[in-house]
Amino acid sequence: MDLIQPTSHIIPDPDKRAGFRAWLPYQSTEPFCEPDAHLRANNLSIAYHDLQVLRNVTLEINRGCITALVGPSGCGKTSFLMSLNRLTDLIPGCQVSGHLQMNELDILAPTTDLLQLRRTVGMIFQKPTVFPFSIRKNLELPLREHGTHDRTLLQSTIENVLQQVGLWHEVKDRLDHPAQALSGGQQQRLCLARALVLTPDVLLLDEPCSALDPISSGIIEDLIASLQGSYTILIVTHNLAQARRIADHVAVFWSLEGVGQLVEHGSAQQIFESPKEELTAAYISGIRG
């Protein structure tokens, strides 16, 4: 198994992380997807400059499962993801209301420690966003920021995580080369590695494959599938076949009168085989959206 080892090295005091990490995925022998809500959104609404783009989303995301968010462009999927690690705070004019909970933690509370939250909730974006320095430094930076300075530990963590994303053999001889020289697919895997290096509980993946060629896309997809059970994963994808292949659950978003809403949520099997809503049925059969 290439999974990185338990995480006590990053923050020595486990109590400090209690609210964020009530449950450590790696301690279970078999990865699994539990019927136990890890994230809960309750009446979540998002607006940009008073323009509402998401209304009253109520949704539970199960621990260790892969949940695919699907729906047409502009229905607020990215906005939803970004509210989960409060990146929405960084977007001018963005207001999030309602209730968001991760384990016991109230994500939207003003007192929430954002730095902690964001290291517990990793995110990667549609476009690979490696930082303009070496591969090694890309991976070391978040570790150092969160208190790991021991060189051997850094090295072994980097190796582990690169192994995990299948990049180790491709880059082990050029760890000190600029990360931007990697191919798009490699960069995206590096971004994934960079998120994993902090051993998050939740991974938010915003169309991670859509800027990539089919081969790289396939590699990333397999990678995500392999993370199932170890992390709670939310993946936005426009590729319904992909959602069908890897997701345990699917949430269908739709833009009704310009405002994004959650139309249906259920197990992948149920959504794809016996959708309850007409819109869902139309969307998955490719008629609309």
Binding site: G19, D113, L115
Partner: peptide
């Protein structure tokens, strides 16, 4: 639940 006062990170 983490309150911000007990958890001021060294960065803040």
């Amino acid at each position: 639940m983490i309150s911000s006062s007990s958890n001021i990170s060294p960065h803040s």
